[in-house]
Nucleic acid binder design. Structure first.
Length: 268
DNA sequence: CGTGGGACCTGAACGC
DNA sequence: TGCGTTCAGGTCCCAC
């Protein structure tokens, strides 16, 4: 499931192919993929514009044009790749962007992914908390201060912190030895700093390993990420804890399955 | 402010 | 073989 490291990997791989390209049009195969405007208005606002940058904010990928931005969210099964044809290379292509002699294809089996155009990113910013990789130790303490949500819910809340999803939330809480239902405000300052540092380590390592391929995620070149080989708890319920050998437990938190070690991650 | 449930979706895995 | 069920989960929206 694309989270921050997966989206960052996609950004890095597509950057060189996209920057400097000029938009010649688009094809929309599943209308709900495009939100916020009609296909005609969408095309009109991006036509003939040059791509000046490829950016990421949380789990969003942002194709920066001269006066507009194309904002893309992959949700669960979205993939992006460069291809010679607007039809793409698989049966789940929902949208493609026409460039000079190549196409950026958006494939999305589950049809949850969304794309929209926006001249300023203020609306997006309103929905998103800070980038986890830029927070300082003091900022981590401030982030958790006074927050009465359970930590698993808090980490998944994009408005509080941008880019973390189910995989890296569970892996981080395990490595930090914190119970997923611990209230954020109950962390001691030293624990808050340490949890932040652990999350940053997890995300940085996952980017270095080019993301986690659980089922659908692929890099733009079609290959899989490597991070899943290093999972300690995600998807491993009932297996022995890598630390104490007690069986890992699965519970539902905020509608998501959550795997943790009841012995190593004691509740405060 | 916080949580819980449903909706959006379809493929994979599993039970019978 | 094939049908039916369950699970996966990011975000939005509504109810409490």
């Amino acid at each position: 499931m694309p989270e921050l490291p997966e989206v960052e990997t996609v950004r890095i791989q597509l950057e060189d192919d996209l920057i400097g390209q000029v938009i010649r049009g688009s094809t929309l195969q599943w209308s709900r993929t495009l939100e916020g405007s009609s296909k005609i208005d969408f095309d009109q606002s991006i036509l003939d514009q040059k791509i000046t940058a490829l950016r990421r904010r949380g789990k969003y990928l942002i194709i920066q044009l001269q006066t507009e931005h194309i904002v893309i969210h992959l949700r669960m099964t979205g993939r992006l790749y460069i291809c010679d044809s607007a039809k793409g290379l698989d049966r789940w292509v929902r949208w493609s962007l026409h460039l000079d002699r190549k196409y950026l294809c958006f494939s999305d089996a589950r049809k949850f992914g969304r794309i929209y155009v926006s001249s300023d990113l203020a609306e997006l910013e309103k929905k998103l908390g800070p980038e986890p990789l830029t927070l300082s130790p003091v900022q981590w303490i401030e982030l958790f201060h006074g927050q009465r949500a359970g930590l698993k819910s808090f980490l998944l809340n994009q408005k509080k912190l941008a880019g973390v999803g189910n995989i890296y939330a569970d892996e981080t809480l395990f490595e930090a030895k914190v119970h997923p239902l611990t209230l954020a405000c109950d962390l001691e300052p030293s624990q808050a700093r340490s949890l932040g540092a652990t999350l940053q380590r997890q995300l940085t390592r996952a980017i270095a390993h080019e993301g986690s391929t659980i089922s659908w995620y692929r890099k733009p070149d079609g290959s899989q990420g490597e991070t899943q080989k290093h999972f300690q708890v995600y998807g491993k319920s009932d297996q022995p804890c890598p630390c104490c050998q007690m069986p890992l437990e699965k519970i539902k938190v905020a509608q998501r399955s959550t795997v943790y070690c009841p012995s190593c991650q004691r509740r405060v």
